[in-house]
Design a binder for these strands. Structure first.
Length: 348
DNA sequence: CACATAAGTTGTGGCGTCTTAGCCC
DNA sequence: GGGGCTAAGACGCCACAACTTATGT
């Protein structure tokens, strides 16, 4: 069993989860992430991170370029600091990772995971298959990426710090930084590209915003009683990000309604064009996660149904406001003696 | 198994401190 | 670009009753 088996998407239940949403405490694949976080403006504000390569359960905040892995704080600490300060791993070159929010398009997502050199068109023209299947990266620029991005063993001299500083983030005498050094999608590159490839196919080509608006695909939002679908594109939490607070129209509102066909478990997506009054049906098998051949389709469909239901129920019951579990404790706390806001000892 | 007791954990709110972002020069 | 200032938000601290879990009878 691969590591990816430990990280099923919380939403669809069977695609490999690559992202982690802190606000939802949910592991999501790229496709479901978009679906969930494009629902409304509030959800689009959720910050998402890549999933930790080691524990598969926490948001990754550190990228270890030596091993090409993304790690959460705990795993990073255990791997790089845990009584191991003299080990090789403590000399690994790492850098902090940032999350993103909003509803980034595929091009933007490529930039976020560090595949700036790949264009969406390349993704569309490519043939990705991950997991047990084949994986061809005949995309322009991708082969380069995997050349440098494979775990590289540098010489011992390279690992020896020259400055004598104690922390681990110092620049080291390492070979020239590789092309695309921003790439930081960890050990699941194939899956990342596979999912983004599928996502790209479900997206309108050329998401050039101005073109999109000019071409009339964007309505003012007041026609047909539809609300404007203007969401922040995404906020990539990087200092030099150009995309911060960019506002782009959401091309189409995609509400996925599970429609079970009598003969086969096929999911249909009702795409409601922003300026369209009637929904247009489009089969989105290609955007769905690949189904393991051994598992009956009906079973997968049921699992997905129940996973979907669980997720939506959980979302409905989520509390954003402060929740008092014990009113008596609240009353007690309010009447307690305080010194500068802190609880003070009771006088005898 | 039922009950009693001990030990350990949780939750509560206001304030101070720290961090971060934004602005101005 | 960098330093200084300000505002906003996040977070830790505090004591102890209430609650949960473990152990003994």
């Amino acid at each position: 069993m691969s590591a990816s088996c430990h990280r099923p998407c919380d939403y669809c239940g069977h695609t490999i989860a690559l992202l982690y949403c802190k606000a939802d405490s949910a592991k999501l694949c790229f496709s479901c992430d978009r679906e969930v976080h494009s629902t409304n403006q509030l959800f689009s504000k959720h910050t998402r991170f890549l999933l930790c390569d080691i524990c598969d359960d926490s948001p990754a905040t550190i990228f270890c370029s030596t091993e090409s892995s993304v790690l959460c704080q705990n795993c990073d600490w255990e791997k790089h600091n845990n009584n191991n300060n003299n080990s090789m791993s403590s000399k690994h070159e790492r850098r902090p990772l940032e999350g993103f929010n909003g509803c980034p398009c595929v091009n933007e997502l490529l930039g976020i995971v560090g595949f700036e050199d790949i264009e969406k068109k390349s993704l569309l023209s490519s043939d990705f298959e991950s997991g047990d299947g084949y994986f061809r990266y005949d995309i322009e620029g991708v082969s380069d990426m995997f050349v440098w991005d494979t775990p590289s063993v540098v010489s011992l001299d390279d690992l020896i710090s020259t400055s004598g500083s104690s922390h681990n983030f110092q620049a080291m005498e390492v070979p020239l930084l590789p092309k695309n050094r921003k790439a930081a999608c960890g050990m699941h590159k194939e899956e990342v590209l596979s999912q983004l490839s599928k996502l790209a196919k479900s997206e309108p080509l050329d998401l050039d915003i101005e073109q999109y608006v000019l071409s009339g695909n964007l309505s003012t939002g007041f026609e047909g009683g539809l609300e404007p679908k203007m969401f922040p594109s995404f906020e990539w939490h990087r200092e030099n990000s150009e995309h911060i607070n960019q506002v782009v129209p959401l091309p189409t509102y995609t509400e996925e309604v599970p429609v079970k066909h009598s003969t086969s478990a096929v999911w249909e997506t009702h795409n409601y064009g922003v300026n369209e009054g009637t929904p247009t049906h489009s089969l989105t098998n290609e955007t769905l996660p690949t189904t393991p051949k051994a598992v009956p389709c009906e079973l997968m469909s049921q699992e997905r149904d129940s996973a979907l239901l669980r997720y939506k129920q959980k979302k409905k019951t989520r509390r954003y406001e402060k929740h008092i579990r014990y009113e008596s404790r609240k009353v007690r706390a309010e009447s307690r003696v305080r010194v500068k806001g802190r609880f003070a000892k009771m006088k005898d």
